[in-house]
Design a protein around this nucleic acid. Sequence first.
DNA 1: GTGAAAGCGCTAACAA
DNA 2: TTGTTAGCGCTTTCAC
Lengths: 337, 337
Amino acid sequence: MRKEASRTTGRPTLAEVARLAGVSQITASRALRDVPTVDPVLVSKVREASKALGYVPNPAARTLASARSQSVVVLVPALSNQLFIETLEAIHSVLRPRGYDVLIGNFHYSRHEEEELIRNYLAIQPCGILLTGFDRTDASLRMLEANRIPCVHMMELTKAEDVFSVGFSQESAGAMVARHLLARGKRRLAYVAAQLDARVVRRGEGFRRALAEAGVNALGLAVPDPSSVGLGGELFDRLLRQHPDVDGIFFCNDDLAHGAIFEAQRQGISVPGRIAFVGFNDLPMSAHIVPRLTSVRTPREDVGRHAAHLMLALLAGAEVRDRTIDLGFELVVRESS
Amino acid sequence: MRKEASRTTGRPTLAEVARLAGVSQITASRALRDVPTVDPVLVSKVREASKALGYVPNPAARTLASARSQSVVVLVPALSNQLFIETLEAIHSVLRPRGYDVLIGNFHYSRHEEEELIRNYLAIQPCGILLTGFDRTDASLRMLEANRIPCVHMMELTKAEDVFSVGFSQESAGAMVARHLLARGKRRLAYVAAQLDARVVRRGEGFRRALAEAGVNALGLAVPDPSSVGLGGELFDRLLRQHPDVDGIFFCNDDLAHGAIFEAQRQGISVPGRIAFVGFNDLPMSAHIVPRLTSVRTPREDVGRHAAHLMLALLAGAEVRDRTIDLGFELVVRESS
DNA sequence: GTGAAAGCGCTAACAA
DNA sequence: TTGTTAGCGCTTTCAC
């Protein structure tokens, strides 16, 4: 059943391609790698020979000889979240067609698990690495520093020197929602949050600050519990008891908003007639699941695409001027299909 | 910024470990790979030397020398589906700690995209491959056949010779739901389906057949459109108009059921009082999103875990008696948290 | 049970 | 612009 141990793969090698093309092995190598200093005539000869033999480069040999693989590692905090899934898809769609392998690591929101992944993945000599956010252990930072491979940070932004990041500002998202609700004439506004990670907190700060600038005091209800649809209903109910006159709510994510919609429907409360809801689609549910909700949409595909292209530029050794790419947010109203 | 081209990685090599341990390189190699014919005393010497130097094997060199990598490829039809995400997680959790790299390929439910992935991934000489289902192109089959690497099929079952599969029977899932509803005294039963892929259809067949055996005729409503929450509401509404006396519905997946719950609530219809719903959690939404729904739960983690362990057995060259692992289904009632 | 030699397939380094 | 040489770090092969 198993293929017995052997030395060769049986596949055509670069040497055979070179022989067929009538050039030296290194010229064939250069031709196939698009090294610019090769005579175009020879390039096409090599290309033909390669095609004729059905040559496929051996990545292991390439990695061994060059001390650098064609693998790009991507580390995300979760796979249960559509945001990251779609980001990964976008990265794949940019990198795979260009011959890179994409290795996915899920660190389950744990800095130490991330450190372990970095340690393990550096063993395969990746040519680049894509990270989520900036919160990592010192050991992680040191390993990345020591390996000197191109590194792109996703989802968050920094102005630090020599750091490449593609993301968006949580504060502006919060502020955007505040302005949206104010513009609709709402004045008793609340932020309902669960699962208080740094991003959720910063979103709330942006919300509160923008309201404060308009002279409006933000109500709030924040619990550390993991977010869920059920919790959304509960929190909505609690908020209503505390502040029966609330007329606008920003939910830190869509599943809370979803539970609240459910609960509002049960209680016969008109949304957005009496209370306007705004969600934030940064959690497990994909956008189309919550019907008719105004929500902040994170530009998920864009993050992946931009991050991957930035990585390509770095791998090509290009001079990158914009080390920071701020993608911003959109406020969208989704209609159930 | 980029690490300039170089030959060496700078990391300690097996030769250095061997020198420090006072053995030959090949003995060090064997010791670290747990080849049984090595003196235990030498093994521990090598282990120590390895630890002292912080030795990490170079996978590229290993792959080149042995013509076989430590990578296991997993091909899934989608990442937007929690079922596959959780399966992948389980596979990772089994294979990574044992030193295997897991390469994920998403073929977007396209046989041709799958073929392309197989072609590309075989280039890296994976040591094994995990596939979803049995529907693939002839070219794919030929490539897999020609490469003779261990191959495990997930999600579906077969009795074919020399084929390893881990999954469950769609027909029995349908039959199970039929029996469940009958046992609750329901007699006007319907199957509501969208996105009619082979699995959805077979589920319906199992449902209908089990009902027929009990002398009950199944109602039905099936559309080819992609499944969504909104569509669930619509189909439910349509079904009610056609068959106002329906008292039990099997939705081919949870998001249809979810939309129907929404719609039932709007219309003031008691569920499960007047109509019992059964869902099937095989689609984008994760289980906890739909509150209070009786649903067929696919044993997602189990599929991954069992498939990965089967792969380990094959990689170890073990004799595998049970080529087919049927995991069955559970019928669970989820309460909103 | 252990080792010496050879070589996997490719690219870096240097030379022409 | 092209080629020669050497070697990446490991495992297979075969001899002891």
